Simulated scan of single mutants.
Amino acid sequence: MNQHSKPRVAVVFGGRSSEHAISCVTAGSVLAAIDREQYDVVPIGIATDGRWVLESGDPDRLRITSPEQLPSVDGARATIALAPDRASTSLVVTEPSQPPRTLGDVDVVFPLLHGPWGEDGTIQGMLEMAGVRYVGAGVLASAVSMDKAYMKVLLTAAGLPVMPSVNVTSRQWAADAAECRTRAGEIGYPLFVKPARGGSSIGISKVHDASELDDAIELALREDPKVLVEAAAEGAREVECGVLQALDGTPETSLPAELRVGGGHEFYDFAAKYLPGEHTEVDIPADLPDEVAASLRALAVRAFEAVGCEGLARVDFFVFPDGSLVVNEINTMPGFTPTSMYPQMWAASGVDYPALVDRLIRLALARDTGLR
């Protein structure tokens, strides 16, 4: 613990992925919610070029005001880094024409990064090496859950239902596009093409027939050299469930929530998720038979434990008309604004946004780094 009377929390956001702006929005909400009477807060932004800077922490600057005005980290601010000493967790600030100065030790990092170079185990590995506690899943769970292809392998091995899919890499596409088309077509249309390690619906296409496949694969490959081609869950409802560990480590589940996308959106794309004025509706709790809701919540815990999650996760499901369930994916750092699904589900379940943030910080402070 640092020498201050309050635990010091470094909120890390931004990053190099295409979800940079969404990470900034998430951070703005968390920074506004952290109880400054309980915690000393240091906002750390990672610019799109990978530079770590001491950010202002102004929540208003980190909001989406329009599709053309997405927030971003100011890479021109003073750079910041952990001290290069395994025995120290001190933050060192460097500014032009000024000697380096220290901000003191960090007790816990709240990594609010979405996508590659953050949500995928990379920052978790760095923090493990530095011996710094952090909120959320560890290296393996973060990496597996970020990579939808490997997530499916692991969930299938654990006996959990997933949608049929095939993988297409940039090398395979360049070497034999016809063979890739054949494998994709065997799944049957319609289908979805998505970056295997992406999020926020960036680079995702719904493909209705073979004529749309090439463009969809090319779009996804611009985001990730590995692409997932997956059967569409036609006729299914999209229902999500939050998992949150109690302070003793027991995973608890929220009330499930159903997404109903309107406004001309064929699926839950980026605009439907994040832009103001869209027509996505949320039902919390989802209108499900009691036995289906109970099964869904039990499957959410099984998925959480199958990948070795810690802290929090949002588990997304397809619910078919006969009540059968399929796990769509796991998000180890789900959207985390007060209007995002995960906080909304927990608010409806009796844990409001400030309490949710506090629970996650306390869980991280109680957990050591290393093997556990």
Results as ranks from 00 to 15, higher is better:
residue 317 F to Q: 00
residue 67 P to M: 01
residue 235 G to T: 03
residue 282 V to L: 15
residue 76 A to L: 11
residue 127 L to V: 12
residue 70 L to I: 06
residue 264 G to D: 06
residue 219 L to D: 06
residue 329 E to L: 03
residue 13 F to Q: 02
residue 337 T to M: 08
residue 187 I to W: 08
residue 276 P to I: 09
residue 113 L to C: 05
residue 342 Y to W: 10
residue 256 P to Q: 10
residue 298 A to N: 12
residue 363 L to E: 02
residue 226 K to H: 12
residue 24 C to K: 10
residue 60 D to S: 13
residue 255 L to F: 12
residue 40 D to A: 12
residue 41 V to C: 11
residue 90 S to Y: 02
residue 247 L to G: 07
residue 56 S to N: 10
residue 14 G to Q: 03
residue 9 V to P: 06
residue 9 V to A: 09
residue 168 V to L: 07
residue 293 A to G: 09
residue 259 L to M: 15
residue 300 A to L: 05
residue 372 R to H: 15
residue 92 V to G: 10
residue 355 A to G: 09
residue 346 W to P: 10
residue 37 E to M: 13
residue 142 S to P: 09
residue 61 R to Y: 02
residue 358 D to T: 12
residue 2 N to L: 00
residue 192 F to S: 04
residue 157 A to R: 04
residue 135 V to G: 12
residue 150 Y to S: 08
residue 79 T to P: 01
residue 269 D to A: 00
residue 359 R to M: 07
residue 98 Q to I: 00
residue 182 T to S: 14
residue 4 H to R: 12
residue 321 P to E: 13
residue 213 L to A: 07
residue 35 D to T: 11
residue 18 S to G: 15
residue 227 V to S: 02
residue 30 V to I: 14
residue 217 I to F: 12
residue 167 N to K: 01
residue 231 A to Y: 01
residue 169 T to M: 08
residue 240 E to Q: 08
residue 255 L to C: 03
residue 145 S to F: 07
residue 238 E to V: 07
residue 285 P to H: 01
residue 182 T to G: 08
residue 301 V to E: 05
residue 56 S to A: 15
residue 317 F to N: 01
residue 25 V to R: 02
residue 93 V to Y: 03
residue 94 T to D: 13
residue 144 V to Q: 02
residue 356 L to G: 08
residue 96 P to V: 13
residue 262 G to F: 14
residue 89 T to K: 15
residue 162 V to W: 01
residue 100 P to Y: 15
residue 336 F to D: 12
residue 192 F to K: 07
residue 162 V to P: 02
residue 349 S to M: 11
residue 46 I to M: 11
residue 114 H to N: 05
residue 295 S to I: 00
residue 192 F to Q: 03
residue 84 P to Y: 12
residue 61 R to T: 11
residue 61 R to L: 14
residue 212 E to V: 00
residue 348 A to K: 08
residue 121 G to E: 09
residue 37 E to L: 15
residue 106 V to P: 10
residue 327 V to C: 11
residue 331 N to P: 13
residue 256 P to H: 10
residue 63 R to Y: 03
residue 246 A to G: 14
residue 263 G to H: 08
residue 183 R to V: 03
residue 153 V to S: 02
residue 132 V to K: 04
residue 209 D to P: 06
residue 25 V to M: 13
residue 357 V to I: 15
residue 60 D to A: 15
residue 23 S to P: 00
residue 277 G to I: 12
residue 290 D to C: 01
residue 230 E to C: 05
residue 181 R to K: 13
residue 360 L to Y: 12
residue 228 L to F: 05
residue 91 L to G: 06
residue 108 V to D: 14
residue 256 P to D: 10
residue 278 E to Q: 15
residue 363 L to C: 08
residue 47 A to N: 04
residue 134 Y to G: 10
residue 121 G to D: 10
residue 47 A to P: 05
residue 238 E to N: 00
residue 265 H to D: 13
residue 118 G to M: 09
residue 212 E to R: 08
residue 291 E to C: 01
residue 310 E to I: 00
residue 296 L to T: 06
residue 237 R to N: 04
residue 336 F to P: 09
residue 275 L to C: 04
residue 292 V to E: 12
residue 274 Y to N: 11
residue 152 K to R: 14
residue 9 V to F: 11
residue 85 D to E: 15
residue 126 M to D: 01
